[in-house]
Design a protein around this nucleic acid. Structure first.
Length: 146
RNA sequence: GGAGUCGGCCAGGCGGCCGCGGCACCGGUUUCGGUGUCGAGGAAAGUCCGGACUCCACAGGGCAGGGUGGUCGGUAACUCCGACCCGGGGCGACCCGCGGGAAAGUGCCACAGAAAACAGACCGCCACCCGCUGCGGUGGUAAGGGUGAAACGGUGGUGUAAGAGACCACCAGUGGCCGGAGCGAUCCGGUCGGCUAGGUAAACCCCACCCGGAGCAAGGUCAAGAAGGGGAACCACGGUUCCCCACGCGGACGUUCGAGGGUGGCCCGCCCGAGGUCCGCGGGUAGACCGCACCGAGGCUGUCGGCAACGACGGUCCCAGAUGGAUGGUCGCCGUGGUCCAGCGGACCACACAGAAUCCGGCUUACCGGCCGGCUCCUCCC
RNA sequence: GCCCCCAUCGUCUAGUGGCCUAGGACGCCGCCCUUUCAAGGCGGUAACGCCGGUUCGAAUCCGGUUGGGGGUA
């Protein structure tokens, strides 16, 4: 589960990321990612925000809830690798409902790595006490390795 | 023991690690941290009914419109529930029924058939007649035939030219009256009548009863805003008066002989009404908090009343409250079911239907299974 | 969340208890015409979302269900 400060809550953020962000498609999900723009000052500093989209095509309400919760738990271990002020939206596809946990995690890591590769050097977030104090230790998964 | 029927309850269990939301307390007091505690369902679903709650409207009358439909009760209310009545099914326990009115009226009943609702007669049967044996005419009759979903009481007899409730016996049905039982629907008995009256109201309709409209995105407070609010005074607490600011374009109408608005279907009527009103297009806003997490038609339990639904009284408990939306993820063991290897056993897969959103009472629909109890029928034993 | 609406051939539709064995147009298929294609002509294909009920009889009336669509300070 994500910490409260890492949740995307505004509809405008979703629209911005889905429209302007960098999208990567995999079989079970789609990832849209957008780094902070310091010139426009959209999100001055602050924690990275993550949002989820699970449409009705995925399944009924029980299935959709379960998919969203599993994705949230997977993202919780990876939030510390996102730079400050970045926005991420994960959209689940119908296949995600029937996928095992390892396979789902593999697809997520693969898509995240592809989305962050081009400009990860500029805004790489420094490790430190401010970077999610409780999660810092276990969020060590290197996206490039996965 | 077998078969069946009705009702109630449960909704895989335990543990490790990592997490989330509300509330209370403590520390900090902007963010936050710690401890404790609570955290999905029987259907949370469909949104089909009924209410609570909120806002708008609320002199009155009429016409529409919608809903319900055996009776009595239960309830805040209901299209719900209970008991009973009637009709149907079952040996039975029991189950099913949108179950008022078709002798107030109107409509419809295709095809077939002579005839489809009010009487009549195609074939037939019988009698008579003839300009005479014809596929003839006149009259009687409705038992028989065939059609149809449905054909004008049924069976047997008397009777007759042939027949017919024309008459008789039994049976069925219907209406009036009388008596009895029941709060009532209704039931039982007697008597009389004409002998008989088709179906359809989930067709119009008639009768009885009920229904104002919208819905928590209701509604309120604050912020923002240029379109609507803000401020002050008086005060009978509902208004009056004054002040501030009052988008653009196009069009229509009007100032007491009244434009337009309200009365949320319409009309009459009533009220408001010029400090102009209405329509179209453009342009602008859509954040936070309250509502809302609650002592409630509340849960559990006991006694009493009632056949029951349910009610009365007492005890006890406080029991989800999010807002891109918490109630979880993962691992291990056990349990249940299935498949395979087919010996102990092991491996693999699955664990139903399904996720609160203002709240409550119902209905309906979906659902792997498990547990408990009442009753009925059959068989066996004592 | 709340409130509404709709469902007929592949597509757009007509049908408002019996004339429905469901009509029309555009499609699609075959044949004719043409040297060939198009156009034209002839013929064919193909539907009442599903389950119950009312009725003698249902696409139509009444319930339920499924699937779409819309509105909403």
């Amino acid at each position: 589960m994500l910490s409260p400060q890492n949740r995307m809550r505004r509809g405008a953020d979703f629209g911005l990321v889905m429209r302007r962000g960098r999208r990567v498609n995999r079989e079970a999900l789609t990832v849209a990612y957008r780094t902070a723009r310091r010139d426009t000052g959209e999100h001055p500093a602050g924690e990275p925000k993550v949002g989820f989209i699970v449409s009705k095509a995925v399944g009924n309400a029980v299935v959709r809830n379960r998919v969203q919760r599993r994705l949230r738990h997977l993202l919780r271990e990876r939030v510390s690798d996102l730079p400050d002020g970045s926005l991420l939206v994960v959209r689940a596809k119908p296949l995600a409902a029937s996928l095992g946990n390892d396979a789902l995690a593999a697809q997520l890591d693969d898509a995240l790595a592809a989305a962050m590769r081009p400009r990860k050097k500029a805004t790489r977030r420094p490790r430190g006490p401010s970077a999610g104090a409780s999660n810092g230790a276990r969020g060590s998964g290197d996206l490039a390795d996965s």
